[in-house]
Design a protein around this nucleic acid. Sequence first.
DNA 1: TAGGCCATCTGGTCCT
DNA 2: AGGACCAGATGGCCTA
Length: 203
Amino acid sequence: MDSVYSDIDSNSCDFFPHTDDEEDCASPEPEPQQKKRRRGRGQAVVHVVKKNRRVKANDRERNRMHNLNDALDTLREVLPAFPDETKLTKIETLRFAHNYIWALSETIRIADLQPGRPGDRPGDRPGDKTGDRTGDRPGDKPLLLGSASPGSDACSWSSSGSSSSSSPSYCASSPGSPAGTEDYGYRPQDALFGFRSFVPGVY
DNA sequence: TAGGCCATCTGGTCCT
DNA sequence: AGGACCAGATGGCCTA
């Protein structure tokens, strides 16, 4: 979308009273003692240079954010989709990805612990390129419980302010054990079940 | 209408 | 010096 300011660029003081352009933007009621300074040619050049730099910086920043959003979209694509196809918000995407990665690694870990594990078969090892992507086949072990439906949050935390308080029992802990429940009967798929499932009426 | 999410602008800081 | 990154501010859009 075009910037709402695109029409304003030529006179940013309308919207950004504290910009470099401040000097040109005589405040509505200039202080009495303040004499209006006339800008000489040199100052005008400096002003134009500054403004150009700002415009370029804005452009770069916009591109940077677009790249970030593209990466986020790419991430959304590899995450399990949800029935109602509601697009995950940015924070939800990140939290869900975190949970998802953790669930996958837990699944691998548990599979490795099992005697005569299926992982002994070629193609079942985590790094085995011959294996299908987990979750691609309907018959796969139900790691991905797509029944978790979007609501408002990817996990059971409330991002309330400080980093300490925003440390959920689940999401912000180390990827190795997001829930801190490693040997308490916690199943990897619970990580995905937990997704957005704390919203009343959603799950 | 309030609240959530988002895009954009902006100035500061760090890095090359 | 200029670019990358970051966080704060602002305003638009959408939904409950």
